[in-house]
């Protein structure tokens, strides 16, 4: 269970949010929405542990995520809108390296299979710089196919994706939720996800 208690966070003098509390159980989805600059990405960066909140605490199963450190990172996958894709590496190399960084080493066959499933057949050996925005996004999202983590924190995962890819991501999220995973995501697009419970958090 991921719990946020009285979170407060500001950028410079600008207070993004305060007294923000919520809790997400196994199999639950939290959709974060709000206008540009309302602090969605900041909230997600707090939840994954990159930034520290000014006030309040974030707990994973009752323990502060800062104290858990690597134990929390082992069960959590964060996909920022930057994606972490290197232009000079091929799709396979990108995927294998980002998985290895996340502590989940995969071999070339598994990487190729995942990329095939996400719709990049025949593009595996191309350097990422020749791929389109949507294809680069797919390379980043392919990590979700091979990861074993429970908590997924996704920042705008649907940007630049076409309808088929959006549908595939929806199925992926549903699969993770049905296994008892947790998903926190921001999106501007409407998406019907059949989760046990889904909460909607609107930042203003």
């Amino acid at each position: 269970m991921l719990t946020a208690n009285n979170l407060g966070f500001s950028r410079g003098n600008h207070k993004l949010f305060e007294n923000l509390s919520f809790s997400i159980n196994e199999g639950e989805l939290l959709l974060v929405s709000g206008s540009n600059g309302s602090g969605k990405t900041s909230l997600l960066r707090l939840l994954c542990g990159i930034s520290t909140p000014d006030e309040g605490e974030i707990l994973w199963n009752g323990a502060e995520i800062r104290d858990l450190g690597e134990d929390y990172y082992r069960v959590m996958t964060y996909l920022g809108h930057l994606g972490g894709i290197k232009d000079d590496l091929t799709a396979i190399e990108n995927l294998r390296i980002s998985c290895a960084l996340a502590g989940n080493e995969i071999d070339e066959g598994q990487a190729k299979e995942a990329l095939g499933r996400i719709g990049l057949v025949g593009r595996e050996m191309l350097p990422a710089k020749v791929l389109s925005q949507g294809q680069r996004r797919r390379v980043a999202l392919a990590r979700l196919l091979v990861t074993h983590t429970k908590v997924w924190i996704l920042d705008e995962p649907l940007t630049a994706l076409d309808v088929t890819a959006v549908d595939m991501i929806r199925q992926l999220l549903e699969h993770n939720l049905s296994k008892g995973g947790l998903v926190v995501m921001t999106t501007h697009q409407e998406m019907e996800i059949s989760a046990v419970t889904s909460q909607h958090l609107v930042l203003s």
């Binding site: 994954c48 542990g49 990159i50 690597e70 134990d71 990172y73 082992r74 959590m76 964060y78 920022g80 809108h81 930057l82 994606g83 972490g84 894709i85 290197k86 232009d87 980002s98 960084l101 996340a102 502590g103």
Partner: peptide, 22 residues
């Protein structure tokens, strides 16, 4: 700087392997 601009550094910070080792 390369890892910073393309987001790989975020992933390194969130790696279950200790950041010092990376």
């Amino acid at each position: 700087s390369g890892d910073y601009t393309d987001g790989t550094l975020e992933q390194m910070l969130l790696s279950p392997v200790s950041l010092s080792a990376l």
